[in-house]
Design a binder for these strands. Structure first.
Length: 572
RNA sequence: GGUCGCAUAGCUCAGCUGGAUAGAGCGUCGCCCUCCGAAGGCGAAGGCCCUAGGUUCGAAUCCUAGUGCGACCGCCA
């Protein structure tokens, strides 16, 4: 149920009537006709721009069309009044029954706000995809939360979603990991070791070194690297992925697919993907122009195998093979995205950190070329998170000593708070995360404010249940109540806009607004006992009053569900 | 030099497919507790929506150019 789209249907029907009556020319394009909440509630409950949009093609004055429309819409049972305003807006005020019906629908219907607009489209959301060289750090948290919430949002709106993690286990950084683990393995055997530059010194590898000792004993002692590197690499990345899965679980993130880069090697998949590009004459040998401006000191022209990404919107062509004949990192990434296309996804979404900004165009070019432009790839970049505590940069880590881990954050404030706060900004805006604010119990902490609204309602509902009262149809008439109902009416709109724009933060902001309207109503009850949900000694009145808060709880719960946050039953 | 992103109240930020007098929180000022929880509520002040052009009936929103800040820019992923 979406009263805005319902009303839009009425508007379109009225326009059709006007066409049939000859008041409007036939065949007008009504695609831009919208029905929206007006910015200023004083204007009414809904407004349509139909008259202004159609004035020009119809060759009529906007206000004339609006007047004619007002006459027809005024007869609709939902419409209390229809008035023409400004340059040709048609403002509609809805009858009280609309709000009562809406509240009844929300509290009874399963999944109010769910929508089928995704049409079952298969969407792949790739996120986190951190290198398997250590525990997740704070930089990964935002992408993890964002990707996860986006995936839930798309699921909520009728898409078939796959959550996917790409394991970068094919590059040189994994050799570094293996050597670092080998040092810990030597340590486990009581050897003195030194961590040279370019190895990972983190404590989290101690246990891996010991586990390696437990597995192979002294078999790799005093052996050359060729003897153990491959095995230790696999052993180490497996261990790291166990760590990473635990980190993700601590945040409440569960992936459907972990896709290994290494699994592409030796199977011909990379070669096939490149061959596919070659068929389209997008692969050639050439020498890139030096970058403009300041040159790297060791710059020299080099002939490389290049992907003609400029044919698909990139600024320069990109190397896919190093001069020694090995693939660049870009080549397996191309193969990986081809694999996704091959698996039949209708839409791909990659969530990257902002430092991958330079990678966007070439990846889009590759997907465009591989899918003949048929599979859209949206890349969402998450900007940096600045952690503060007491207004000071936050520094602490028991685990790594060098960076703040995901666990540090979750241990400090909990997964629910972490998730909500990470979604209180647009993904492309930097985010300040203040630990004190995040756990503060006050209005300027949105997490608390929304949770508090839910807890208040649950508290009331428990009391009502104790008295054996069941919700009954509500009369929504008082302005504070109508404000809340109006917010509830917007929920399906917000969900759809958020899903279409791939912007889950809109859900968080909406929940804050809804909570605010609810708290306002609650507080009005302090002054005016007739507005309280619990009407002492009047079970029937109480039954009617609790429908509205019940509906609010349903929507808050659904919204928090999309964000991956557990709704609070009570505040402690 | 190039690419991408950002620029909205003193501060931190929302702002839908372009829509009416641009919103919220903090901070400031003024009211409100015997009252389902004041962990709060109501109200006030506070704006060159970075600048200049353009498109449009209508621009914070779209286009062009510029300014400022950030990220990135050939065998690291």
């Amino acid at each position: 149920m979406n009263i805005f789209t319902d009303m839009r249907g009425r508007v379109l029907a009225a326009l059709a009537d006007l066409e049939a009556a000859g008041d409007l020319p036939a065949g007008l394009d009504t695609g831009n006709v919208s029905v929206e909440p007006p910015r200023d509630p004083a204007h009414g409950d809904m407004a349509t721009n139909a008259a202004m949009v159609l004035a020009k093609p119809a060759g009529r004055k906007p206000r004339e069309i609006a007047e004619a429309l007002a006459l027809r819409l005024g007869d609709a049972p939902e419409v209390e009044s229809a008035t023409v305003a400004g340059p040709g807006f048609l403002n509609l005020r809805l009858s009280a029954a609309v709000w009562s019906d809406l509240v009844a629908h929300v509290r009874n219907a399963d999944g109010y706000g769910r929508s089928g607009f995704g049409g079952g489209q298969k969407v792949n959301v790739e996120y986190v995809s951190a290198n398997p060289t250590g525990p997740l750090h704070v930089g990964h948290v935002r992408g993890a939360v964002f990707g996860d919430a986006l995936a839930s949002l798309l699921d909520y709106t009728g898409h078939t979603v796959t959550r996917e993690y790409y394991i970068n286990d094919g590059g040189a950084q994994v050799d570094v990991l293996a050597r670092s683990v080998y040092l810990r393995y030597l340590q486990a055997h009581g050897r003195e070791v030194e961590f040279a530059e370019g190895t990972y010194p983190g404590d989290y590898l101690i246990a891996v070194g010991e586990a390696l000792k437990a597995k192979v004993g002294d078999a790799y002692l005093d052996m050359p690297e060729e003897a153990w590197l491959q095995d230790v690499r696999t052993f180490s990345t497996d261990a790291m992925m166990v760590l990473i899965r635990q980190d993700l679980a601590a945040l409440g993130v569960e992936m459907d697919v972990f896709f290994s880069e290494r699994s592409l090697y030796g199977t011909g998949r990379i070669e096939q993907a490149i061959a596919r590009l070659r068929e389209r004459e997008l692969i050639y040998k050439g020498t890139l122009e030096p970058p403009k401006g300041k040159l790297p000191e060791d710059w020299e022209p080099r002939e490389q195998t290049l992907f003609r990404s400029t044919a698909h919107g990139d600024d320069v062509d990109r190397p896919i093979m190093k001069s020694d004949g090995a693939w660049t990192y870009f080549a397996p990434d191309i193969a990986y995205h081809w694999d996704k296309i091959d698996r039949g996804f209708d839409q791909l979404i990659d969530v990257f950190g902002a430092d991958h900004g330079g990678y966007v165009k070439r990846m889009k070019a590759a997907v465009s070329a591989l899918s003949n432009g048929e599979v859209p790839l949206d890349i969402k970049l998450c900007q940096l998170v600045k952690l503060t505590k007491d207004g000071e940069p936050f520094k602490m880590s028991k685990r790594s000593g060098t960076f703040i881990t995901l666990r540090d954050v979750v241990d400090e404030v909990g997964a629910d708070v972490t998730r909500f706060v990470m979604l209180t900004r647009k993904n492309d805006a930097p985010l300040d995360f203040d630990f004190d604010r995040a756990v503060e119990q006050s209005k300027d902490n949105p997490v608390f404010y929304v949770q508090y609204a839910h807890a208040r309602i649950r508290s009331v509902l428990r009391k009502v249940a104790d008295r054996g009262i069941a919700p009954a149809p509500a009369a929504i008439s008082e302005p504070s109540e109508v404000d809340v109902a109006r917010r509830l009416a917007e929920w399906p709109r917000v969900v759809e806009i958020a899903a279409r724009t791939h912007e889950p933060h809109r859900i968080a902001f909406y929940l804050y607004d809804l909570a605010q309207s609810f708290h306002a109503l609650w507080n009005r009850g302090n002054d005016d006992p007739s507005l309280r949900f619990l009407q002492e000694g009047a079970p029937d009145a109480t039954a009617a009053k609790i429908s509205l808060p019940l509906a609010v709880a349903v929507v808050i719960s659904a919204g928090l569900g999309i964000l991956g946050v557990t709704p609070a039953e009570e505040m402690r």
